[in-house]
Amino acid sequence: MHLAYPAVLAVLLFCTGLYGVLARRNAILVLMSVELMLNAVNLNLVAFDVWLRDALHAGQALTLFTIAIAAAEIGIGLSIVLMVYRNRGTSDVDRLRDTAEATGPTGPAGPEDTAPDGAADATDPDATAAAQKAEATA
């Protein structure tokens, strides 16, 4: 089998995951996208291991380790997301903006009560969308 097939498939899956990480709003969906990226790497590892016929099978061993680590990561990630959700009432990544540049010397503030004038254009549609989402949920 041509090595290019698994390699290209891995690339496509990785970039799909990349898009998901960058574009998804819900933190759990972001985690799913991360899983996709990890799996793309796993595919690469397995393909190259098989291609190289490694005596130690380092690629496959590493794949197994990656799977285990991914499981741990998903556990920790989910617990973090849960805690954020309990504290903030949301798990939307783009609404967790405590590190945004504040407009005044009053220190960090929530993104909605003091939106920086520069970010106002970007946040306003999101805020309205979030409100709609909240209504839909309720």
């Binding site: 574009a23 709003r25 999101d126 979030a130 989402k133």
Partner: peptide, 12 residues
Amino acid sequence: SPDADSGNRWAA
């Protein structure tokens, strides 16, 4: 849910 994607979609 209409807002599953964030405003970062096009950049992403």
